[in-house]
Amino acid sequence: MTPPAHGEPSLPPVFKRRAGETMAQIPKEEYILETTSACPGCSSSLSLRYILKAAGPDTVLVIPASCSSVIQGMYPNTAVNVPVYNIAFAAAASCASGMVAGLRRAGRETKVIVYAGDGGTVDIGLQALSGALERETDFLYICFDNEAYGNTGMQRSGSTPLGALTTTTPLGKIHPKKEIDRIVEAHHPPYQATAISAFPLDLFQKVEKALTFRGPSFIHLLAPCPTGWRFPHGKTIEVGRMAVKTAAWVLWERGQGRLSVSAPSKGPLKRPVPLQDYLGMQGRFKGLDPALLSRLQQGIGTNREAILAEAERP
C-alpha cells in the first residue's frame, strides 16, 4: 500500500474502525507490564496501556522528563514492551522529528509517539512542539496532563487550572490554564483530540484513528492524579467521569478541519452537572476563593460554548 499524502487518512472512509468497536474487541496484547512504579491509581499508566494496545508493537515511545520517566521502571528493568527513547525535558518533539526522518530514511514505517506531561508540552517543550507541528512531522504527540509538575512533587505548570493548590501556589493558582489545544490548532494538524483514562474505549479509538494520518496528530489527555489532586487512589475513574459530566473536560476530536463531540461528552456539554461536584472531590480546590471559583466557572463555560459552536457549524 502506498503511504498516504500528508493530512490524508490511510483507511477510507474517514475514521474507519479496525478493532475496538467495543471494549471486548480491544487487543489482548499487553505492552505495559504489571510492574510499573506508578503511584496507586495513576491514570497515566492506565492510559498508556490503551495507547499501546491501539498502536501495536511497531511503535517507539519518546518520553521527556516526566512521571513516565519513572513509571517505566529503573535500569536494568523496564515495564514497557516497545522501545522507549528517553530524552531531555525540552527535546521530545524535536528528538521525535529526527527519529521519524531517520526511520523513514531507513525504509521503516515504525510509529513514533511522544508521550509527554503538561510541563514538557505547554511549558518547556512548547517551542520544540510548535516546530515539529509546523514541519508536519509524521508523529502522534500525546500530552498527559495532570495539571502540574507531578514528577517533582506537584509544582504549578502553565496547565494548572485557576485556583488549584500546588506546592508553588500555596494560596491557589492566580493564572488560568494555558489553552494548549488552541495553540496546537493554530498549526492545523490533520488530527487533534482530547481524551481521558475514564473512557478507555474512546481513548483507544482516538489513538487508532490518529495513527492513520500522515503528518502530526495531537491528543490532549487529562490525567487525574490522586497524589497531586488529593483524592483517594481508588477514585481515579470517578474523578475522570465527573470531569466529563461537569464539562470541565470535554471529549472531542477534529479531523480534516471538522470538530465532533465524542459520545461521553454529548449530554454533559448541553446539560453539565454543577462544577462543584468535580472540584469537591479534590483536595487541591479546598477553600477555593469564591472569586476564583467564579472565574474558573466562567472559563469552563466559555470553552464549552466554543466547542458547541464549532461542532454545530454547518
Binding site: 530524552i87 531531555a88 525540552a90 518533539a93 524535536s94 528528538c95 529526527g98 516546530g131
Partner: peptide, 16 residues
C-alpha cells in the same frame, strides 16, 4: 527552530 532542537533531532535520527 533552534540549536537545542537541532541536536535533539540528530539524536533521534542517529538512534534510528
Amino acid at each position: 527552530e533552534s540549536e537545542h532542537s537541532a541536536m535533539a533531532a540528530c539524536i533521534g535520527a542517529s538512534a534510528a
